[in-house]
Structures are given as C-alpha cells and as structure tokens.
Amino acid sequence: MATEAHATEGVTGYIIHHLTPLHVGEGFWTLNLDTLFFSAVLGGLFLWFFKTAADKATSGVPGLVQNFAEMLIEFVDNQVKDSFHGESKLIAPLALTIFCWVFMWNFMDLFPVDILPLIGSMMGIEYLRVVPSTDLNATFAMSISVFCLIIFYSIKIKGPWGFAKELMFQPFGPWLLPFNLLLKLVEEIAKPISLALRLFGNLYAGELIFILIALLPWYIQPVLSFPWAIFHILIITLQAFIFMVLTIVYLSMAHEHH
C-alpha cells in the first residue's frame, strides 16, 4: 500500500509515518510487531488485573480492585443475560475479554500521538503505531474468531443438517434455494466484516484526526485535541461495548432454532 512509500517529507510524510506499523517479513508473512506487542501487553495487563482480583475474591467486603472487577463482571453479565437465554460457560468470559481488550486497545488512542513513537525512536525504533485497533489485522483477528465461534455453535446446537437447512430454506422456503443460500451467506459473512471494519474505521479515523490536530500550530492544538479527546473517551468505550454486545447477539442467534 501507499504506506510503504514513506520517504516523503512534510505533512504527508508525517501522517504516513504515523500510520506505518513496525513490521518484519515480506508479503503475507509480515508481522506487525507493534500491534502484536501492544495488544499482548494490554492483554497481559487485563489478565493481571483480573487475576489479582480473582485471587483475592471474597464474598465478604470487597477491596478496591475486586470492586472494580466485579463492577465490570456484573455489567458484562447483565448484557449477556439480556440477550442470551441459554447456558454457556464461554460467552460471558468471552464478552468480558472482548470488552476489556478492545477498550484497552482503543485507550491507547488517548496517549498523545507523538509521545510513544518519540520514545520508540529514542530506542532506535523507526515506526510505531500504538493503537492496535487501527490495525485491520487486530480487528479482523477478533471478528474472525467470533465468526468461527458463530459457525461452531450453529453447527453444535442445530446439528450440521439443521444449520444447512437454515442456510438453504430460509427465509423464502425451498423453492428459492440458491437465493436463500446467497442471502444467508452474505448475512453470515457480513457479521465479521462489519464487526472488524466498524471498530477499525472508527479508531483509524479518530487517530487520523489526532494526527491532523498535531500538525496544527501548538496554540491551536489544545483547543481541538481536548474536546476531541473527551469525545473519544465516549467513542472508545462505545466501540468496545458495541463489539461485545454484537458478539453476544450473534452467538445467541447461533444458539436459537428458527
């Protein structure tokens, strides 16, 4: 893509520089090290925090850490109970992981756009894109995993034949079988694509606007970046929430018989 041609100086060069990931490898076997690194660190942070809370979990008076963890757990559990009416040991922890992880990815957006790349360049790292959700690989990895779970549960609950029947005979009955199949396939495939692109698009655009603001004279920057950052607090939470809720909804749809 265009980001490979990053030699240009000036405004375009600055933007391209900010949007180029730190990568190794060629072609498909390229690894975006920054995405992998930051998402793993954030995931580790998430696990560490919740593990601390879980280890100290008591049914008595909860501590500060446990209180916060329980608040999130209860919040996620309510969302799951609202839309998913069945027994599943996976869905609630999955939803919690998605919400927290996506939120933390997105939260990286609130760090000043130049500060982490600056630290990186001091350590000899040329490119650094700190927000994992501005990498399509990250968002698609998550949505494709969710998609796999949707297919898995559809087949598990309805049986292979039941799932095939649903694909072929709905919504218009057996006489329009090819049309049904096409419609259903589009519907199913639209799920992971929309999940991934919604998150990616929102955060990519947000990051881009931060970068653009950073290009303005310093005395104008706070006037714009401050409201945008506040607005972004809402956006990042909302995007994490949407990803989680849609995952729950899709999985509960996979559990339902029609």
């Binding site: 975006n32 992998l36 990895a141 995993s145």
Partner: peptide, 15 residues
C-alpha cells in the same frame, strides 16, 4: 498479513 494469526492466537489465549 500474518499478524492476523498472531492476534487470533493471543485472543484465544486471553479468552
């Protein structure tokens, strides 16, 4: 690119 696979593995481990 292959980051996708790495991210999927991380995600699976986290979940």
């Amino acid at each position: 690119n292959a980051t996708l696979i790495g991210q999927m593995i991380t995600f699976a481990l986290l979940v």
